[in-house]
Design a protein around this nucleic acid. Structure first.
Lengths: 238, 238
DNA sequence: CAGTGGTCTAGACCACTGA
DNA sequence: CAGTGGTCTAGACCACTGA
């Protein structure tokens, strides 16, 4: 137990809040009081309180003090698994099969495609993810060649496009939409399920600055897959 | 533009990383170099770098320096909307209808119920959420009375249990599972959809410390609802 | 208008670890 | 073993704002 002091202070206060000893609306000790209580400098308690404020557990108001925030319907942290790693972590065998690869221009009627690629070319890819030989996800993806020109020569039959993009494109911004749909006939065929069977649909749009990079729509077999999100004190729920 | 200096330094570096000017694996200037470049103290640059490290954009290694992290299949921030607020934000009219309220003991055969309530009593609730008179979500919920004894006297016909719990139970830890299922007949009836129609299923378990508080399973009409998650530079991409 | 948090300084000692 | 980041100190000035 040689945690830094600011981290110990943060954890103590977090425990008081999560346990209810400090109820929503309650005022925390001032930085000055915490300094004296822990016999440390103000920067140290400030670091602890700032971390709690960033996490949304407290609100800090000048002249007034720091207060336990009202529990909000807060945001949670969603794990985005890498499909290959996830399958292998569970002891399964992973395989990706490229179904279609196609170069084309964006359809002028489709504003999403125009926003992604502007006037440039797109690669359109379709592929299926297998675990132990059984399909569990099907994806349709567009990659903007003006944003990622190297993608023209990539062999997506050998490397799944998600993994390829991770390796060839640095940090991006991304937005995810998660919904449930019935499998259309084409998707159902790829996933070996009945048409209309429930699928988790995840659509991810990715860009760098203002430039669109890729858009992918993945259908997961409903009975075989779920996503997990969490909120709470960091590492171990015990 | 009177951003704090540490925030300006952080944004500058973040922009360099997201744009690719600093590629994954690249070494950032040392704290000492950044001090000199910005003519500020080390604590100030340290605050900027620490924030980037917390966000996962850089890795910091003693003796070696700070490096742009390899983009990982990272976690994203999932917005958990309050259903009533969400409906009204879109200009709709929200209504919650309690379908069932029932006090009982956990079923000994159900380990999840035992974990939630131990030997204590449970309230079992079922209800439907409406937007503009149309059902869009159905939920089954269990509340542990040993964790929340006041729930025994709450009038869940007047206040939806989710909102009631937010007001009466302080901060909690929570875990969310998101999947897609076909509507069972009972659920389909409540949602006025065909049995087997695709639904987004969200199951949330909530506890305080080691004590279970509530478990809720919500079915959303697939065609009427989705969840959104994001990763990227904080507030405005503008 | 006084107390609070926001920010910043110019130092310090230390642990770690890769050149 | 020297350079890096991790942490901490003991101050400072300021903006804000609610008593």
């Amino acid at each position: 137990m040689s945690l830094p002091l600011h981290e110990r202070i943060r954890r103590d206060l977090e425990a008081d809040i999560l346990s209810g000893r400090l109820a929503p609306g309650a005022r925390l000790p001032t930085e000055h009081a915490l300094m004296e209580a822990h016999r440390c400098s103000r920067m140290t308690v400030n670091k602890a309180l700032s971390a709690l404020a960033v996490a949304g557990l407290i609100d800090r108001r000048k002249r007034a003090g720091s207060f336990v925030a009202r529990p909000r319907v807060h945001s949670m942290v969603l794990d985005i698994p890498d499909l290959e790693m996830e399958v292998e972590r569970r002891g399964g065998r992973y395989r990706y099969a490229l179904v279609k690869r196609h170069l084309r221009r964006p359809r002028p009627a489709d504003p999403a495609e125009l926003q992604l690629a502007g006037e440039g070319e797109l690669i359109e890819l379709e592929g299926t993810h297998f675990a132990d030989g059984l399909p569990f996800a099907f994806e349709r993806r567009l990659i903007s060649l003006s944003a990622v020109p190297e993608a023209r020569d990539a062999d997506f039959a050998q490397v799944p496009p998600g993994a390829w993009l991770l390796r060839h494109v640095p940090w991006t911004e991304a937005e995810l939409h998660i919904g449930a749909v019935g499998a259309e006939p084409g998707v159902a065929g790829q996933l070996a399920i009945a048409p209309g069977a429930p699928c988790l649909m995840v659509e991810r749009r990715t860009w760098r600055g203002r430039e669109g990079v890729t858009r992918v729509r993945q259908h997961f077999v409903g009975s075989a897959y779920d996503l997990v999100a969490r909120f709470g004190p960091e590492p171990a729920p015990g």
